[in-house]
Design a protein around this nucleic acid. Structure first.
Length: 258
DNA sequence: TTAGGGTTATCC
DNA sequence: GGATAACCCTAA
């Protein structure tokens, strides 16, 4: 090769990560053309972005080179549609709010070291919603469904979206539902069966997600109870000392607590 | 335009 | 010489 290899700078890597966070993995051209990143990535092609992201993903997953994971590409078109770019939305390997490489998610969803794409979407939703005390499940569901154009299973959507009061959201939802119903009506029996199976799987996943949410809530409440108990302890001690006629300053109280 | 596999350069 | 990163090629 004539030209020497052009090593990626940290600025370029950062721009790529931010670009993936902004547009999603797979939108290499969009990221490359984005005025926010184009100054940094001007010397890189969309292919370069894709290759670099692939390298980053594999190195971050701890699996080393992608060569080790190579699997033969099926020649015939697969019956199962390839995941949408959003489903493969990645986040930078060294960022907390970021997700793991898609390959891992797709190949080993049970691998608890790497969050699933759904988990990534939840993280993204929480990040976008920026609610100080966390977000309601329904709000997160709405974010994922509307912002990300995903459709939740009917049963889960009914449960999760019932408390939502925003009429515009309801309107959109019902419009979507009728659209979906229309589409379902045109499906063949085989597709119907596949759809029903997919719905069941999605429903199970939703239930698992709900269970996880509840566990987190239980943990949170447990912590609150602990804190309340220690506060109660402190209050009783203060009451006792005061009733004995001891003079306490705010500073002493603060030291006692912290 | 993108994904995925192949090839080559570089580093240790 | 092996591992990794950067680049290239091709199918869809």
């Amino acid at each position: 090769m004539g030209a020497p290899k052009q090593k990626w700078t940290s600025e370029e890597e950062e721009a790529l990560r931010r670009g993936v966070l902004k547009h999603g993995a797979g939108k290499w051209r969009t990221i490359q053309k984005d005025p926010e990143f184009s100054p940094v990535l001007s010397s890189r092609s969309n292919i370069d972005l894709k290759d670099k992201w692939r390298n980053l993903s594999f190195s971050a997953s701890g699996l080393g080179s992608r060569d080790k994971l190579r699997v033969p590409r099926p020649k015939a078109p697969s019956s199962s549609p390839s995941p949408s770019p959003q489903l493969l939305l990645l986040s930078a390997p060294n960022n907390v709010a970021e997700a793991s490489p898609p390959e891992d998610c797709e190949k080993s969803p049970q691998d608890d070291k790497t969050p699933s794409p759904k988990f990534s979407m939840i993280l993204e939703a929480l990040d976008e919603l920026k609610e100080p005390n966390g977000s309601e499940v329904a709000t997160i569901c709405n974010f994922i469904e509307i912002d990300k154009s995903y459709k939740l299973t009917d049963s889960y959507a009914k449960r999760a979206l019932a408390p939502m009061k925003d009429p515009s959201l309801k309107k959109k939802d019902s419009a979507k539902s009728s659209k979906a119903a229309k589409g379902l009506g045109q499906l063949s029996p085989a597709l119907d069966a596949a759809e029903a199976a997919a719905m069941k799987v999605a429903d199970a996943e939703a239930k698992s997600h709900l269970a996880n949410e509840h566990m987190m809530e239980v943990e949170r409440i447990g912590k609150m109870a602990e804190e309340t108990e220690s506060l109660l302890e402190l209050a009783s001690e203060l009451y006792e000392r005061c009733s004995r006629g001891e003079a306490l300053t705010i500073l002493q109280v603060a030291h006692r607590e912290f």
